[in-house]
Design a protein around this nucleic acid. Sequence first.
DNA 1: GTCGCTGCAAAGTCTTTGCAGAGAG
DNA 2: CTCTCTGCAAAGACTTTGCAGCGAC
Lengths: 160, 160
Amino acid sequence: MPNITTDFKDKTLEYSELLENFKALLKKNKLKFTIQREVILETLYNSDEHLTPEALHQLIQKKYPKLKTGIATVYRTLSLLEDSNVVTSLSFGAQGKKYELGAKEHHDHLICTECGKITEFVDEEIEKRQHVITDELGFKMVDHSMQIYGICSQCQKNKS
Amino acid sequence: MPNITTDFKDKTLEYSELLENFKALLKKNKLKFTIQREVILETLYNSDEHLTPEALHQLIQKKYPKLKTGIATVYRTLSLLEDSNVVTSLSFGAQGKKYELGAKEHHDHLICTECGKITEFVDEEIEKRQHVITDELGFKMVDHSMQIYGICSQCQKNKS
DNA sequence: GTCGCTGCAAAGTCTTTGCAGAGAG
DNA sequence: CTCTCTGCAAAGACTTTGCAGCGAC
């Protein structure tokens, strides 16, 4: 079976486009476009990682020390972005949540339990089966998330 | 396509067997078998739901008011059970975690965002695809979890 | 100017920990 | 008897909220 149905990662949206969308969203809801909100969006965009609020805050403080962005603002902005479906959050076993831009297309996650690296993927076959399952139960699917945990090839090498 | 690959829910292990396994596990690790630990295991077994530590604690207090079981003990026991793979935890978007007996066979979750009801299922096709995906990346799968969010048929009826 | 936004600190949740006494082995 | 477990309360980690001044529009 040729591998034509599984795609790994890619970034589809230009930052300028994302920013325009965000501005439009704010305007639509009579919210203000502030420098903090832009910085948070931009930092999320430029990070390939999935960030915790704390990590995001630290990145911003390092990059824009003058701004003295408060952690509360990071939380508030992330909530705003999540409600608007601009970002998506992932919940992990322990405590804490990580955020990523959700404007990219839907995807699932492969998580390395050794190094924490997250690889994204989409598999058509799985997406199809999900519909079969929910249809069968009369369940109306709104969203789904899938995480596969394991050890990435790099960490396997390091161990041996 | 006949539906022969998707199974919905079932309970496979007798409580007595589960209890014996638990006792053996404790003995192996030189841990003690206490009434609190038994009550927590039993309550988890008799609940078809996925319980939060708080909910589990309340159930226990209602059923065994004399025992005055502390919430700390519930947390401590759940950690113990999770480390021993007797229970599995599910993390949710907001805060909080829910626990279920994990001795049952592996399964995924369908979660109703209206009423919170959780339906379990296993789909062979999806399980297969997961292996295809991880093999392709040289990723060693240890575990996975999948949640489908949506509105169950009952809640759809109630709304209309 | 107006009204929403921000930083700060205080207050909330949920979870973990320290400790002295209770209880299993 | 010994050494782990437990309940309680205090401490922690993470997140949210109240408020006065700031800043976008």
